[in-house]
């Protein structure tokens, strides 16, 4: 445990010692802020309209603002996650510090989990910014906070899975740009896979659609914890971390 925390803390410090963390925070805050005010704008004009027509349709903050925003966050995450995970191992290989880590009395898995945890925590920090925006909604309306919590849990699970895959990809190269680009490609594919379900019913299409990370997020955005989807993310996470461990091992053989 201590070793995991040692690695994790070092990794977090590196994120914040370089512009990476700040850049991500700023980008996320701006993009997400835009989505947020957009959603609020639409909501306001909608409620104006329904008032003028004299109908008092029950307006649901959760359904109209929070859910679409959570879905959007899930997609924005696909673009940011490669930037978080790309340096994890690629940079250690390039700097030669891998030699320090791999010859210290620390298990490979402790190194991997420490690094992955730091990445998840940075992503958590990004999500925390979005939560600040939601506080506005509580000031002006009465959204239900439970589905929001479930939504954030889903976002974290999704990020955990993609970051694990990104960590694995980062072990395969010394060049973090290559690691980032490859991870981005994988994230994008895992998103668009769900499209095949729109026109194809065959088994392979079902498998592909099942692999789509965003479609598994949908129930979470509605505030529903579906074990099937949680298991999907957790399995993907384990798979990614396991592959990372195998890759480190083969790195030792080839080094």
């Amino acid at each position: 445990m201590r070793n995991i925390w040692t690695i994790c803390r070092k990794e977090l410090k590196s994120y914040f010692a370089s512009p990476v963390a700040y850049l991500l925070l700023a980008m996320f805050a701006i993009i997400w802020g835009f989505f947020f005010w957009n959603a609020v704008g639409i909501f306001v004009s909608f409620s104006m309209q329904s008032q003028m027509m004299g109908r008092s349709m029950p307006m649901d903050l959760n359904e109209m603002i929070i859910r679409p925003l959570l879905m959007n966050t899930s997609v924005i995450g696909l673009f940011l996650i490669p930037m978080i995970s790309m340096r994890l191992f690629a940079e250690e290989k390039r700097q030669g510090t891998a030699e320090l880590l791999l010859t210290s009395p620390v298990r490979d898995m402790e190194i991997i989990i420490g690094k992955w945890l730091a990445a998840v925590m940075l992503y958590g920090a990004l999500l925390a910014i979005t939560a600040l925006n939601f506080i506005w909604l509580f000031a002006y309306g009465k959204p239900d906070w439970k589905p929001m919590l479930v939504g954030y849990l889903g976002l974290l699970l999704q990020a955990g899975a993609l970051l694990a895959i990104g960590t694995f990809i980062s072990t395969t190269t010394k060049n973090q740009i290559i690691a980032g680009a490859a991870t981005f490609g994988v994230c994008l594919l895992l998103w668009v896979f769900e499209w095949v379900a729109g026109y194809e019913q065959a088994a392979w299409a079902k498998v592909m659609a099942y692999m789509s990370v965003v479609s598994h997020f949908e129930p979470f955005s509605k505030g529903v914890i579906d074990t099937k989807d949680a298991i999907f993310y957790i399995t993907l996470t384990f798979f990614g971390l396991f592959m990372t461990a195998r890759s480190l091992e083969s790195l030792r053989w080839r080094a």
Binding site: K10, S14, A17, G96, T97, L101
Partner: peptide
């Protein structure tokens, strides 16, 4: 190692502290 395994973004003291922890 042949190339000293250093983290450029760390201060010397911080780095040595990190290695100390890493070595248990």
């Amino acid at each position: 190692p042949e190339t000293p395994p250093l983290y450029p973004e760390m201060e010397v003291e911080e780095y040595l502290t990190f290695v100390g922890r890493l070595k248990g």
